[in-house]
Design a protein around this nucleic acid. Structure first.
Lengths: 193, 193
DNA sequence: GTCTATAATACGATAGAC
DNA sequence: GTCTATCGTATTATAGAC
């Protein structure tokens, strides 16, 4: 882990990374169950067996996709725990949560979470995400919250999700990604007010 | 179709209906892809082949599950088209939509739609539902709506869904079904105000 | 690090007996 | 209306050559 040890991260052809990237695209597009390792391999011009050199199982591919997001969420949750509760904190939590969903490939990841909840049900990554969503929901919900307020907290998170990837039921939102994000944050903050 | 023609509806052991019921429960619980015909058959103490006597394909089972809801939605959409647009109509649309989701087994169906969007992607039933959600969203969105208002309309529908089956991300809402429904309608109407 | 080949298993769907 | 038996095809995963 010294500063000069660049070699380990400088794999000339980062097959492992390409597998992760393609897998995430396919998982988000068509779901985990309906995406086969053969399909992932084919897109990269390699074979299934080659994929198994880089990952022990299909689920391991999925698990590594969540690592970054989960770490970011844990950081956010821990930070929020040290702050003074109140409407202002809730607004800041939502802003930081949206930042986690912005940039990188977190948009595909959150689309996968939002649209493929069923497939995540029995997977370790699913349990991991459910825990974090639960923690976030609690942080966004005053202790004496009504049922409607609890529901609003959950919807605030969904609003940010829908702003991150557009799609979802019915027609897509017609707007640029920036417009969507801005609108989503506005709606989410209003819901968690 | 005469009044006395009861026989056809009075099948002593309604296997077809039982298949539909069990299938819906399993689809809602674990998703369409992960539910096999063998599993459905086993729960009823029959074989896969027997299931194929009642339905030509697995997808046909799913399709019949949506028939009632789709018919109700079409009726609602048509009715709404004859009314004067405005905040008041939007509130009434949401109320009637919630009624469609209440009673019967529509709760399992809408849970399946909400949590299993990925599996519905390439299915005829999925396209059918997406059309209706799109129509509903448009009815709930003023013509000059901002992006935020468009998003709020979609969230209003999601609010009713979450009120219909509790579950979803993070912790379940702690409330009776009635409390959940009441809160969901309040939140939904506020979103579509 | 990638390959061919294959094991083991499950799936949706069909044929034909009863 | 339900059964047994099976077909054809996919899947995840592994063994072993190169």
């Amino acid at each position: 882990m010294t500063a000069g040890d660049v070699r380990t991260d400088e794999r000339r052809t980062d097959t492992r990374g390409q597998i992760r990237q393609v897998a995430l695209e396919l998982f988000a597009e068509q779901g985990y169950d309906k995406t086969s390792l053969r399909e992932i391999a084919e897109r990269l011009g390699i074979t299934k067996a080659a994929v198994y050199y880089h990952f022990k199982t299909k689920e391991e591919i999925l698990a590594t996709l969540f690592d970054e997001l989960v770490a970011g969420l844990d950081e956010l949750i821990e930070w929020a725990g040290t702050q003074d509760p109140g409407p202002d904190l809730r607004a800041r939590i939502l802003g930081r949560y949206q930042e986690l969903l912005t940039g990188g490939s977190a948009d595909n990841l959150i689309r996968f979470v939002q649209e493929g909840q069923a497939s995540l049900k029995d997977l370790a990554a699913g349990a991991q995400m459910r825990e974090r969503f639960g923690a976030l929901s609690r942080l966004l919900t005053p202790p004496d919250a009504t049922v409607a307020e609890q529901l609003r907290s959950r919807l605030a998170l969904v609003a940010l999700h829908m702003g991150a990837f557009a799609g979802s039921h019915g027609d897509p939102l017609v707007a640029t990604p920036e417009e969507r994000r801005t609108a989503a944050l506005e709606v989410a903050r209003d819901l968690a007010r």
